[in-house]
Design a protein around this nucleic acid. Structure first.
Lengths: 232, 232
DNA sequence: TAGATTGTTAATCGATTAACAATC
DNA sequence: TAGATTGTTAATCGATTAACAATC
């Protein structure tokens, strides 16, 4: 049971839509910090993050009152508060399963390592790939999955395997006690309640673009074509 | 001006949330088709796609009445209708700018080529990479961006460059008349009205996972730590 | 006809936004 | 104090869901 002390009366439950935008604000704030900006208004930060300023203020109000009326937000302080809220002030050990081009791209991705995340394991089923040195790590065989998770305290697993292997990897990962999975394989993973799966799907984004592109070009789906198949 | 003839009275404007799910349904349907399933109920298709069946029926109702009461949906026919709605019955030429690990992963990604999309150009600024053969294409120099877009009828550009190069590439692409961009670089791109940018952000998904993981482990952000910085 | 399942209605829920009182 | 900007209210909008009449 989680006990709320009088010192932390803020109600739980930050809206999902807000959580999804916090990383955006964090990135914009880091950009400002690099340019040595000390204070920023909701209006300016909203422009940098590409959102409406009312939405930004509403989002930040869910975390607490970290701004100063008439002044704005202290950049460093807000970076700290958002980082803390997202859990980035602690270190998360991540394992990447599947070391093809995508897995390599992820392993080398600066954004992973920089803030809060540490790639603690790279695993692949292909003996040709096992032993390769990537981003300072040696690729291990997928057979080691359970022991890597246990020994290195992995709490988040990234699945970058072919679609056919993803569910089996997912099952083993969950059996090892991991409850946070980032899936790049183009399949819907089946998981028990309590396990969080987030999905990045490259082709879905492209299909959504095509939908809008089609409307620009044609004003809608092609109507001239006839359905050549049979309907039962 | 787009004129609506009496033959196509269906009102325009499929909700964004629906459009974003159509690719999911399409994938589930293709899975059923491979297993030679002829007909599927909204309940079964919903399970395969990982959504609520009421939502599925509501989504499909925006496209038209393609089901049969008491029976379900004809798999092949629904594949055709969703494909047409998404604009996948035509061929879109895609150029990928930035041929690092991520660009290579995208170029080799089966999902791109299979349905409606054709990688028509790979471009990179690094002379070391120019000339490489990837996925049946030769990598060209970024200087050729405008001519590749014009000569090969590219209508969708994927930006997989480092963050620092993304906005400049984006500007040139838009100047060449492209209005659909898929951005993998971790920056907010500034574009004029009428240009669609979709964004895939690898680290943002990880940060959202960390947020939820933290709540499982601690019940919330670490409260013991003190802010060590100064607030103006 | 009886059983099954769609397509739609209406209620509910959550997210967005403008406006402004609070306050630095 | 006067000007600026936050944090919050309340209205609006869009998405989700259960329920069921229509109908195959």
């Amino acid at each position: 049971m989680i006990r709320r002390t009088p010192q932390q009366p803020r109600e739980r439950g930050i809206p999902d839509a807000t959580v999804a935008r916090l990383p955006l604000y964090l990135r914009a704030l880091n950009g400002l910090a690099e340019r040595a900006v000390a204070t920023v208004s909701s209006e300016d930060l909203a422009v940098a993050a590409g959102v409406n300023s009312a939405k930004l203020r509403k989002d930040l109000s869910h975390l607490g009152s970290y701004g100063t009326r008439g002044v704005g937000y202290d950049v460093q302080y807000l970076i700290y508060q958002i980082s803390r809220e997202l859990g980035l002030t602690q270190d998360w050990a991540v394992a990447i399963v599947g070391v093809g081009n995508l897995g390599r791209a992820l392993a080398n991705y600066g954004g992973f390592v920089s803030r809060g995340f540490r790639v603690a394991g790279l695993l692949d089923a292909d003996p040709e790939v096992v032993g390769d040195h990537i981003a300072g790590l040696v690729v291990e065989h997928s057979d080691e999955l359970e022991s890597v998770i246990a020994k290195r305290g992995v709490s988040i697993v990234v699945i970058a395997t072919p679609a056919t292997a993803a569910q089996a990897v997912c099952d083993r990962v969950i059996a090892s006690g991991v409850t946070s999975i980032l899936n790049f394989a183009p399949v819907v993973l089946t998981v028990p309640a309590g396990v969080d799966v987030r999905k990045v799907d490259l082709s879905i984004e492209l299909q959504i673009l095509a939908f809008h592109e089609q409307r620009k070009v044609n004003g809608g789906p092609v109507m001239g074509e006839e359905w050549a198949g049979e309907v039962s």
